[in-house]
Amino acid sequence: MLLEVRNLTTHYGRVKALDRVSVDVPEGTIVTLIGANGAGKSTFMMSISGVIRPSSGTIVFAGQGIEHLPSDRIVSLGISQCPEGRRVWPQMTVVENLETGAFSVSGKGVVQDRLESVFSYFPILKERRQQLAGSLSGGEQQMLAIGRALMSGPKLLMLDEPSLGLAPIIVEKLVSIIREIKEHGTTVILVEQNAFMALQIADTAYVLETGRVVMSGKASELLQNDLVRKSYLGI
């Protein structure tokens, strides 16, 4: 197991955003968390990456407890996060954004190699390398945000709502790139409101409701589950 989360509880002040959430992420798979707005999906990711401190529970990554580590240590251990809403640095160029993503990496050669591999996933970024990130289209910004997360060379990549606000044709493109990333050996946690897209590419899935895991299992089985179909797929 690459990542083992046990009874993770996170509060915002007095509000409990995550309530004893346990999630297993086997190496080399795509695990998805689906759920409505406010179910705690983003909180889950930020608790793992150390941006928010969980109030209790354990997070074990590659055999090491990380729930008390600062976020920069967590990144250098190999967990990378692509936050919600295509957050890029609009005033930096595409290349600068990517290089900043490799902040925990030392060595110019390594950074250059990573840059090339990101460009091979997203050729459009290579064409736009000197443009300011703020001038890219929504889909391109999302690609840049994912590319930046890949720059640290993660073992585990966490994507928060990558499909948000993108045209269906771009979502399809992203799906194939996420699959490609997995095939190259990076484990992926995918947080999505677009449950249909997420369940199609994930191996296992967890359904979150108001901070609790209410259902989990193989993604292909959840795709057939009546409750999931009714509540999240609208079928």
């Binding site: 250098s76 936050p83 957050r87 640095w89 900043t100 925990s104």
Partner: peptide, 10 residues
């Protein structure tokens, strides 16, 4: 530009 984002990339 964005402190949370900066922290999340290490």
């Amino acid at each position: 530009e964005n402190e949370e984002l900066a922290r999340s990339i290490g």
